[in-house]
Design a protein around this nucleic acid. Sequence first.
DNA 1: CTCCAGTTGCAACACAAATGCATTTGCGTG
DNA 2: CACGCAAATGCATTTGTGTTGCAACTGGAG
Lengths: 151, 151
Amino acid sequence: MKDFESTAETLIRSTGDRVTGARVHVLAVLLGAGRALTHNEVEARLEPELGINRVTVYRVLEWLTQRNIAHKLSGEDRVWRFSVQEQGHGGQHPHFVCNACGRVLCLADSDESPKPRLPVGFQSTEMELTVKGLCDACNEHSRRTAARGKK
Amino acid sequence: MKDFESTAETLIRSTGDRVTGARVHVLAVLLGAGRALTHNEVEARLEPELGINRVTVYRVLEWLTQRNIAHKLSGEDRVWRFSVQEQGHGGQHPHFVCNACGRVLCLADSDESPKPRLPVGFQSTEMELTVKGLCDACNEHSRRTAARGKK
DNA sequence: CTCCAGTTGCAACACAAATGCATTTGCGTG
DNA sequence: CACGCAAATGCATTTGTGTTGCAACTGGAG
């Protein structure tokens, strides 16, 4: 955990902006998550005694996104999710969303880019590819239990 | 307009569920739109004298989605958008989102599907490809204002 | 140490969407 | 063709995510 905090501090310091407790702790949570987290998930993983405000978490996440340290993506449940920008991913990597537990994680970039044809006059700046399905845990779980309502 | 309503009625009747005014009118609006509409846009296009409630529009749109008549997708602004499921599109077609005006429309399917590699144990059921950029109108508009001098 | 722009906390707000419940309505049945 | 009832609707209220205005605080430069 402390490892993530020092990494977080280094990343934040490299932006030239202020190194504050909230920024370090929020980024450390994202670094330790290994997947995209919602604002609520980030808040829940912060030590309560730190006393970091809900709004501050929003603003830190927004700040991280602007500095290209984190990546902001919209899920199917109209909730923002944030993940640390891993090295080599230019922000164009595809994401996987689990239909059962809602987990979101980043996938390795595909070798080829699909590039659908656009109508005339249209201009593409970026592309987001989202693969939906079952993650390993939910896949295993659903295989074990025959019929069950989904979450 | 009336043409869309009769098409809508046929589609709704084919589900075996009830054919109600709200369902016919809402679906007719979607059929005539040619692009994905938000709940608000649908509501705005309904004749006010029909007196269709806001909540009813939500429920009809949800019902249309469940019956696979409409397609529900989430934009970057955390607002649901609904489009009629066109024939031949298995719900796998890519979408285009305009960064300026927020318009969403369906694109023709690409020749090949990219299929990024998934981690072990993961299972893919569907995929959503969203292309972001500027639509024809906004593209033209930004080109004109840029030529007029920078702001 | 002092200062102050950049941050944070707090409260109040904005807004899409969901829910509980009473009322209405489509449509199969007698 | 009237009747009955589950499905559908209208209305008020609630939920949950995210935003904003403003006062108080603080990191770090000097």
